[in-house]
Simulated assay, not measured.
Amino acid sequence: MPVFRGGTAVTAESRLREDLASAMASGGQGLSAADRLCVACVDLLPVDGAAISVIHDGETRGTFGSSGEFSRRLDEFQFTFGEGPCLDAVATGAPVLVPDLADPGERRWPAFTPAVLDEGVQAVFALPTAIAAVHVGVLDLYRASSGPLSETVLNAGMWAAELAALPLLDLMTSDLDWNAASEGGDGWEQLASLERVEVYQATGMIIGQLDIGPVEALARLRAHAYLAGQTASEVAWDIVERRLVLTPDDHPAAGNNLGSIG
């Protein structure tokens, strides 16, 4: 039932929209605004986690905002496995709503789904974010309980996904040249910093150690993460800090050899 504010009817959905916008605008821009938006989603909506992924060329380029480390880790699984609802949401330009990840009929993401279920997540809702009609990111909402979002909550979530474009614009120029990101202005340098630098450092070390190409090196890193139940970034830090050395035998086809721990 609507309430009246200044003689104007205010619905639950419009109140949520106002509160989400107010939370993001409460101070600071860019990454801090994205984090505030994710925290507001958890505070105002019946969800337990929120994260904003930046997507380009079919891969997650980084977590642009999150409600906390738990949500950031969940987002990382989509990069580790190269699959997940955020990638599908950008590919289709439409929301991907999964009210019950444990549903036996839910088979779209054979690696991502069991990983997040193991983390205690039962439902995920991926809402695409667009800039100038180009889908460049996704707001992921996570829930520990299964069940769909109500129409009011879903509409508020879609509004939050629209708001997520605003802090992205604080970091971007109009020329979306990802390959030249590090050569651009301040905004692009901040955006480039979202990329998983430790993964690329670790991939370079694997290339040198095993004398293989970059595609195979990244595949081995991801395969190790999958077998070890870790994210790609966690494995990368172990490699960069020389706690882990991958061996020629830990190719996915070689079984469960997880490399040597230093």
Rank of each mutant, 00 (worst) to 15 (best):
residue 259 G to Y: 03
residue 62 G to H: 04
residue 60 T to Q: 12
residue 142 Y to N: 01
residue 184 G to R: 04
residue 259 G to W: 04
residue 3 V to D: 05
residue 24 M to K: 07
residue 218 L to D: 07
residue 186 D to N: 10
residue 124 V to Q: 01
residue 33 A to T: 02
residue 162 E to A: 14
residue 57 D to V: 02
residue 228 A to V: 14
residue 10 V to L: 15
residue 231 T to G: 01
residue 56 H to F: 09
residue 124 V to D: 01
residue 25 A to P: 14
residue 121 V to T: 01
residue 121 V to R: 00
residue 109 W to T: 00
residue 169 L to Q: 06
residue 215 V to K: 15
residue 124 V to I: 03
residue 128 P to M: 00
residue 95 P to C: 02
residue 123 A to V: 00
residue 186 D to W: 13
residue 251 H to K: 10
residue 181 A to T: 09
residue 85 P to T: 03
residue 40 A to K: 09
residue 81 F to C: 01
residue 166 L to P: 13
residue 124 V to P: 08
residue 128 P to G: 00
residue 28 G to Y: 09
residue 257 N to S: 08
residue 72 R to C: 05
residue 180 A to S: 15
residue 95 P to A: 00
residue 79 F to S: 14
residue 209 Q to K: 13
residue 144 A to R: 06
residue 29 Q to T: 10
residue 74 L to W: 05
residue 115 A to F: 04
residue 70 F to T: 04
residue 120 G to K: 03
residue 205 M to Y: 05
residue 10 V to D: 03
residue 48 D to F: 02
residue 51 A to V: 11
residue 45 L to R: 01
residue 238 D to T: 12
residue 104 P to V: 09
residue 58 G to S: 03
residue 134 V to S: 15
residue 252 P to F: 15
residue 242 R to C: 11
residue 195 E to D: 04
residue 4 F to M: 11
residue 159 W to C: 06
residue 52 I to K: 07
residue 54 V to R: 08
residue 20 L to A: 12
residue 162 E to P: 15
residue 183 E to N: 06
residue 183 E to G: 05
residue 26 S to G: 13
residue 213 G to I: 05
residue 214 P to S: 02
residue 19 D to N: 12
residue 252 P to N: 02
residue 121 V to G: 00
residue 70 F to W: 12
residue 245 V to S: 08
residue 131 I to G: 10
residue 82 G to V: 08
residue 36 R to F: 11
residue 181 A to D: 03
residue 67 S to H: 03
residue 124 V to K: 00
residue 46 P to M: 11
residue 180 A to P: 15
residue 261 I to G: 06
residue 100 D to T: 01
residue 233 S to I: 11
residue 159 W to N: 06
residue 174 S to N: 09
residue 176 L to H: 15
residue 246 L to C: 08
residue 129 T to P: 06
residue 170 D to K: 11
residue 260 S to C: 13
residue 239 I to Y: 01
residue 67 S to P: 13
residue 252 P to C: 06
residue 25 A to K: 13
residue 112 F to G: 01
residue 109 W to K: 04
residue 130 A to Y: 11
residue 163 L to A: 02
residue 176 L to R: 12
residue 220 R to A: 07
residue 74 L to Q: 02
residue 154 L to C: 04
residue 31 L to C: 07
residue 68 G to R: 10
residue 178 W to M: 03
residue 227 L to H: 14
residue 165 A to V: 03
residue 136 V to K: 14
residue 114 P to K: 01
residue 47 V to E: 01
residue 57 D to C: 07
residue 170 D to I: 06
residue 55 I to V: 11
residue 65 G to L: 00
residue 224 H to G: 02
residue 101 L to M: 09
residue 107 R to G: 07
residue 17 R to Y: 06
residue 122 Q to H: 07
residue 155 N to W: 08
residue 83 E to V: 14
